[in-house]
C-alpha cells in the first residue's frame, strides 16, 4: 500500500565498462584499458579515483592512471590485494565490470605552472601520479624543470618500465630511480626514495612537489621537502583510505574533519597538517 520501489539513477549505481586491453605489470599489479559501454569519456582530473565494481563480489577504490587527454576510455593499474582486486586478476579483454565516478578532488596543478615540478612516487604511488606526470609532460612548456623520483622495493616491482625508459631518455625530465633491495646488475640508486634528494639541487621557493606512496613514505618525504624549504602549501599528497561509497557518506575514509573520498584524496601538506 504505502511502499513504492523505484528503479532509477542513483549515486550508487555502477556504469558498465569493458576491458579493452590488459597487461601484466608485475606479479601483483595489472594494467587495464577500460571503455564505458556508453562510449563517454571518464572526464577526470589527475589524482581522482573511481569505484570499480565486480557485482556479486564488491567494490574497490582505484586511482585513474591515464591522463585526462586520453578520451578513448581510461586506464587503471590495479594491485591485487583484496577480494575485488584479486578477482580482477582473472578478468580478460572483453570482460565487463562496473565503474562509479570519477570521485574526489585531484591534484591542484595550478601552483606548479611556471615553476619546477618535483614528483616523488613510492611503489604503487606512481599510479595516480602518472596521470599528472603525463599531463605535465603534454604541457611541458608551462613548467620549468620536471624532476621525477621513483622508488620501489626491488627491480621486479617497477611499474610502467617502458615509460620509465622514455622518461629516463627524455632530456626534459630529470629522472631518478631507486630500489630498496637489488643485485649487482642494477645501474641505479639503492635505498629508500628519500635517498634521492641529495642527487639534485632544488630551488625550494620555485618548486612544487607532488608526492604519492605509502603513508610511511609520506612522513619521510615531507621531512625532506620541509627541510629543503618547499612550503607546505606547495607540497601535495594523495592519501589512501578506505573509500567505500566515494561520495562522503559511509564514513570509512574520514580523517579528522575531512572525507578523504570527497575533499581528497589529493591534499596540500598544509591541509593534511590541519586534520
Amino acid at each position: 500500500m504505502s511502499t513504492a520501489r523505484e528503479m532509477r539513477e542513483s549515486i550508487y549505481l555502477p556504469e558498465r565498462a569493458q576491458i579493452v586491453e590488459k597487461k601484466r605489470m608485475t606479479d601483483d599489479e595489472t594494467w587495464y584499458h577500460l571503455r564505458f559501454e556508453s562510449g563517454r569519456a571518464l572526464g577526470h582530473d589527475p589524482g581522482q579515483f573511481v569505484e570499480v565494481s565486480l557485482l556479486g563480489v564488491g567494490e574497490a577504490p582505484i586511482s585513474v592512471t591515464s591522463p585526462p587527454s586520453m578520451t578513448d576510455g581510461f586506464e587503471l593499474c590495479i594491485r591485487h590485494v583484496g577480494n575485488v582486486t584479486d578477482r580482477l586478476r582473472d578478468l580478460e579483454e572483453g570482460d565487463w565490470l562496473g565503474i562509479r565516478g570519477p570521485f574526489g578532488r585531484g591534484f591542484d596543478i595550478e601552483p606548479a605552472r611556471g615553476k619546477d615540478v618535483l614528483f616523488v612516487a613510492g611503489g604503487l604511488g606512481l599510479v595516480p601520479l602518472r596521470s599528472l606526470i603525463k599531463t605535465v609532460l603534454e604541457n611541458r612548456e608551462d613548467f620549468r624543470r620536471v624532476i621525477l623520483f621513483y622508488g620501489t622495493r626491488s627491480p621486479d616491482t617497477l611499474l610502467y618500465e617502458e615509460e620509465l625508459a622514455e622518461w629516463e631518455a627524455d632530456p626534459d625530465v630529470e629522472f631518478h630511480l631507486t630500489v630498496d633491495m637489488t643485485d649487482d646488475t642494477w645501474k641505479h640508486n639503492v635505498g629508500v626514495v628519500t635517498s634521492l634528494f641529495p642527487r639534485v639541487s632544488l630551488d625550494p621557493e620555485e618548486t612544487v612537489a607532488y608526492v604519492c606512496g605509502p603513508d610511511i613514505m609520506f612522513r619521510f618525504v615531507v621531512q625532506q621537502t620541509s627541510r629543503l624549504g618547499i612550503s607546505d602549501e606547495n607540497t601535495f599528497l594523495s592519501l589512501e583510505r578506505r573509500m567505500k561509497c566515494g561520495v562522503g557518506k559511509c564514513g570509512h575514509c574520514q580523517e579528522g574533519s575531512v572525507y578523504v573520498c570527497r575533499e581528497g584524496p589529493c591534499f596540500s601538506y598544509a591541509e593534511v597538517k590541519a586534520f
Partner: peptide
C-alpha cells in the same frame, strides 16, 4: 554466466520510498 566472472551483467538502482 555467473557473477564476478567478468561476464555481462545487468544492474539497477533500487530506491524504496514508502509514505510514512
Amino acid at each position: 554466466a555467473t557473477l564476478g566472472s567478468g561476464s555481462e551483467f545487468r544492474a539497477d538502482a533500487v530506491v524504496d520510498s514508502p509514505t510514512r
